[in-house]
């Protein structure tokens, strides 16, 4: 069975990765050109742009991997995603409060003997010096530094961000490996989204349960969760959004409608068919094979 999960996600995620990388590259280059940050950055004094890019790209790739594992944005409400997004927000808020990473440092650093004047008071508070410099002291120069923010703060934030991403990756990787060793389902997988179906003696209830299980799963993948939707409308929504490549969902909808609203006697073959369709859809993106014998039933 082809791994349809990545087949389906490929287009969206490739676009996302390209978009993020391009944005990052443009952002980095612009900042470099505007502020000459590399000159001032005590961490990246190597003056090799590729190092800096790699330092950002690797955590970014890890972040994308985490998002993929979390099936972002379909499962944005998972606690771990909320935590990750909260951390990102915290990072950006911290950046805004403490000053951006790229405060307007002097483009050309000057001699250590120069007088340092706070940015906010440049050319205003030190009137005398300015007057002097224009008339008698041409060697006196001024540099501009952030009033409140030390240059190292931006790097602390970056480091914090990278550490957060690495911790997230390690946590997910370790837990998943542990689960695999134990033989249970992967931590972040499609299967996690659906609950174990209950078994009823009543045939209609089994079909209804299959339908609920499948519709809950499809809702998790982005189908409309509105309560006012009828089963037919929900089916149309699933088809419109192309949430599943399995075309049998409308068959499951019909079986559900018959089981739920008719007075018909529901046969076991209908129950089996509902189960097969349900499993097909739920395991659509995983490598789990449907038992062909069961499908034939």
């Amino acid at each position: 069975m082809v791994n349809q999960r990545f087949k389906s996600l490929r287009r969206k995620e490739t676009f996302l990765i390209i978009f993020l990388l391009l944005s990052l590259a443009i952002f980095q280059i612009t900042m470099e050109l505007l502020h000459g940050r590399r000159e001032e950055n005590p961490v990246l004094k190597l003056n090799l742009p590729i190092f800096e890019l790699v330092a950002i790209i690797i955590p970014l790739l890890i972040l994308i991997w985490i998002l993929l594992k979390l099936e972002f944005p379909f499962r944005i409400f998972k606690p771990i995603t909320i935590w990750l997004v909260a951390m990102l927000l915290l990072f950006f808020v911290a950046s805004i409060i403490t000053g951006a990473n790229y405060k307007p440092y002097d483009f050309n650093p000057i001699e250590s003997s120069t007088t340092t004047v706070p940015l906010s008071s440049t050319s205003i508070t030190d009137t005398e010096t300015l007057t002097d410099s224009s008339e008698t002291a041409p060697t006196t120069r001024y540099t501009r530094e952030p009033l409140l923010v030390l240059p190292i703060l931006g790097d602390i934030q970056n480091s914090f961000f990278i550490i957060l991403i690495l911790i997230s990756a390690i946590v997910i990787f370790r837990t998943e490996r542990k689960r695999k060793q134990e033989g249970s389902e992967p931590l972040i997988s499609i299967e996690e989204n659906h609950r174990t179906p209950k078994e009823f003696e009543d045939a209609p209830k089994n079909i209804i349960e299959c339908y609920y299980q499948t519709s809950e799963y499809l809702e998790g993948k982005g189908a409309d969760k509105s309560d006012h939707l009828t089963a037919v409308e929900f089916d149309e929504d699933v088809e419109k959004k192309k949430l599943t490549e399995i075309e049998d969902f409308n068959e499951l909808t019909d079986l559900f409608s018959e089981a739920k609203f008719s007075e018909h006697e529901i046969s076991q073959s209908s129950v089996n068919r509902a189960k097969v369709v349900s499993q097909k859809i739920i395991f659509e993106f995983s490598n789990i094979e449907i038992d062909p014998l069961e499908e034939e039933e």
């Binding site: 209804i208 609920y212 519709s215 509105s226 309560d227 006012h228 009828t230 089963a231 409308e233 739920k260």
Partner: peptide, 12 residues
């Protein structure tokens, strides 16, 4: 009204 009334779909 139809968009506010819950359709019988989700309850067992």
């Amino acid at each position: 009204i139809l968009t506010n009334v819950k359709a019988p779909r989700k309850e067992l």
